[in-house]
């Protein structure tokens, strides 16, 4: 494997009263879509801000592109979409884009045709001379997204990438992200919505309360953490299903809702035996599928129900320095 694009080594960040990130390590390989997953308050944004050198870690190191220098030193190669979106409300759309590109070290004249091109691609050409605050929220989000990729960064960092996007814009964003990966760019994004992560991520890292629970490729994680699952759909007759699902030698856990059931097999369980028993008992099936567990299920199993309520953060807003 080549050098990781982002190598985070045991970073810790304490704010007055609590530890937001606790000795976290992760490595983002080049050319992948990497999901940083965790419940609200898990330390995702703080981790991202430390990667970008907006905050300095209390201890630990961040290495980018396998080279020395902070996120700010490499900012020309990084695009950043923060969780809290915002642009200058009174500036013209095109001017905002050119200004932000300038801060990334792109010459205004070079940035201009690219900005116009992106505005056209996302259907905003007619709005380029309008002020930002005349645009709808969705259009502003698109403009901000353009500003994060206009300088053609090698690494795109998005905090809560899909929050607040309508389905259409969400699709546009997803398509663009996939296209960037196809061009060899690396994408690191955080989210607490597992369905989105499952659709686009190659790698994931699940964190809770500032600590890493698991990381790796999505398929590895599913293989090692999910157990074996069977999805069953009945077509009318259920036969003796309830008795068969209650057999703890075969089925560890059954989640039955009407005509549908998700079974987690017991360690010695055999899906073929269950299928045979069901058919013999007279059940009619429209689906019987050996499945990987959803990321959502792994996430909940790993994180546990109370991790979604992070420890109280007295004084949390103070001294984020």
């Amino acid at each position: 494997m080549s050098q990781p694009i982002v190598a985070v080594d045991r970073i810790t960040k304490r704010f007055a009263g609590h530890t937001a990130v606790d000795s976290l390590s992760l490595a983002v390989p080049p050319g992948v879509i990497y999901g940083l997953l965790g419940p609200n308050g898990a330390g995702k944004s703080t981790t991202i801000r430390m990667i970008l050198n907006i905050y300095a870690p209390d201890s630990g190191t961040v290495r980018l592109f396998g080279e020395a220098g902070t996120g700010r030193d490499h900012s020309g190669r990084i695009g950043y979409l923060p969780e809290e979106r915002g642009l200058y409300p009174k500036m013209r759309v095109l001017d905002v884009l050119l200004f932000l590109a300038e801060l990334k070290g792109v010459d205004r004249r070079a940035a201009r045709p690219k900005a116009l091109d992106w505005l056209a691609r996302l259907g905003l050409s007619d709005w380029r001379m309008r002020k930002v605050n005349e645009l709808s929220k969705g259009m502003q989000q698109k403009v901000q997204f353009i500003s994060t990729i206009l300088h053609e960064p090698d690494l795109l960092v998005m905090d809560e990438a899909f929050s607040g996007l309508d389905p259409v814009n969400s699709q546009v964003l997803k398509d663009t992200v996939l296209e960037l990966r196809a061009r060899g760019k690396t994408i690191l994004f955080s989210t607490h919505i597992m369905e989105q992560a499952e659709k686009v991520c190659d790698h994931v890292c699940i964190i809770a309360r500032g600590k890493k629970l698991v990381d790796g490729t999505l398929s590895d994680i599913k293989r090692t953490h999910g157990g074996r699952h069977v999805l069953v759909n009945f077509d009318g007759a259920r036969g003796d299903a309830d008795r068969i699902f209650a057999d703890r030698r075969q089925v560890a856990k059954a989640d039955v809702s009407g005509q549908f059931a998700e079974l987690e097999l017991a360690p010695q369980g055999d899906a073929q035996e269950i299928l045979k028993a069901l058919v013999t008992s007279g059940a009619r099936l429209s689906r019987f599928e050996l499945a990987e567990p959803s990321l959502n299920k792994i996430f909940i199993d790993l994180v546990g129900p109370d991790a979604a309520n992070p420890v109280a953060r007295p004084d949390a807003e103070v001294a984020r320095a």
Binding site: L52, I54, P82
Partner: peptide
């Protein structure tokens, strides 16, 4: 208040 400062300080000190 517009939160754009976070983008700015990721690019310059």
């Amino acid at each position: 208040t517009t939160k754009i400062v976070e983008v700015l300080v990721s690019s310059l000190r």
